[in-house]
Amino acid sequence: MALLEVKNLSVAIRQKQGLITVVDNLSFHVDENETLGIVGESGCGKSLTALSIMGLLQGSQVRITEGTVCFDGVDLLILGPAERRAIMGDQMAMIFQEPMTSLNPVYRVGDQIVEVLLQHLKLSRAAAKQRTLELLDLVRIPNPILQINSYPHQMSGGQRQRIMIAMALACSPRILIADEPTTALDVTVQKEVLDLMGELQRHTGTAIVLISHDLGVIAQTCDRVAVMYRGKIVETAATKALFADIRHPYTKGLLNSLPLVDGDVEWLDTIPGQVPGIETVLPGCAFQPRCAFADERCSYEKPNDIRVAGGHWARCHYAGQST
C-alpha cells in the first residue's frame, strides 16, 4: 500500500461565474522512501494540491469538491479538525516557497522549532532545545548554539529555508511536502538545499513530494515525476523512463525550454501562447490551443490516460506513437 494515495481529487474556486475547477480529478500516489516530483507552470494547481493534502486550504473561496487523500490507509478528508492537527507537523510536514516570509518575525528561530516539538512530542523544554540544536546541526546551520537565538531577519534566505527544513523534520515526519522550496533562492544555494533534502531523505527515509516549475530541479532529485497542466496530470513516469521517452507534447515543451549549459544555443525554445484562463472551458484537450501536434480530434475530444509502459502514462491521443 502506498504511503499517500490521492484519488480523484478536485479543488474548486468560487468566482462570480460560479465554481471553477482548478484541480481536476487528480490521482497519484507516493510510496515510502520515495521522492515524487510534481511539475507544471504557475497556476496549474500544484500548490493547491499540496495545500489540500496538508489540510491548509483556507477561506470560503477554495474548497475540495471531490476525492480522497489517504495517508497510511486513512482518508484525511473525513478526519475532524483535531485529528487532522495531530498529523500536521508530526507525520506530515511542509516546506514553503518563501523562506523570507514563512517564519514568524517576532520569535527566535530556535523557539519556533521548539514549538512544533512541544506540540507533538512529550518532551521537556530543555530536551526540546537539545533536539533543536541537533536539528540545526543536521541542516548545517553553522554555530547552532549561537544561531538558535537568532531572529529570522538576521539570517539569509538559504539559512531560513534550512530552518524551515529543520522545523519540518523536527518530529520525523513520514512525508514531507516541499512547495517550490528553492525557487526563491540563489542558484548556488538552491543546489545546497536540494542536496541537503536528498541527504536527509537517505538518512530518515521520509517520503518527499517536491513541487516545482523547474523540470531541471525535478530531474535532479526525484524518483518519479508527474507533469501537471491546467489541474490535470498529463504525464507521469519514473524519472529515467520519462526523460528517455517523453510522450506528451507539453512535457516535451517544458524540456525544450530548459537552458542547456553545454549547448551553444542562442535561442531558447518556449511553449507558444499562454495557459488559457481558468474560466475558459475547452471541450477537447486542455493543451490543444498551444500544441504543435494538435489536429482536428484534439479540439473536440478529451484525451484519456494512455499507458506507454509500466508506470508511464500520458494524457494525449497520440501518446501511443513514439515521437
Binding site: 495531530a86 517564519l103 514568524n104 512544533v116
Partner: peptide
Amino acid sequence: REDHVRTARAKGLHP
C-alpha cells in the same frame, strides 16, 4: 494572511 501564519497552522497548532 501572512505566510508565517500558514507555517504555524502547518505545525498542527490549535487555531
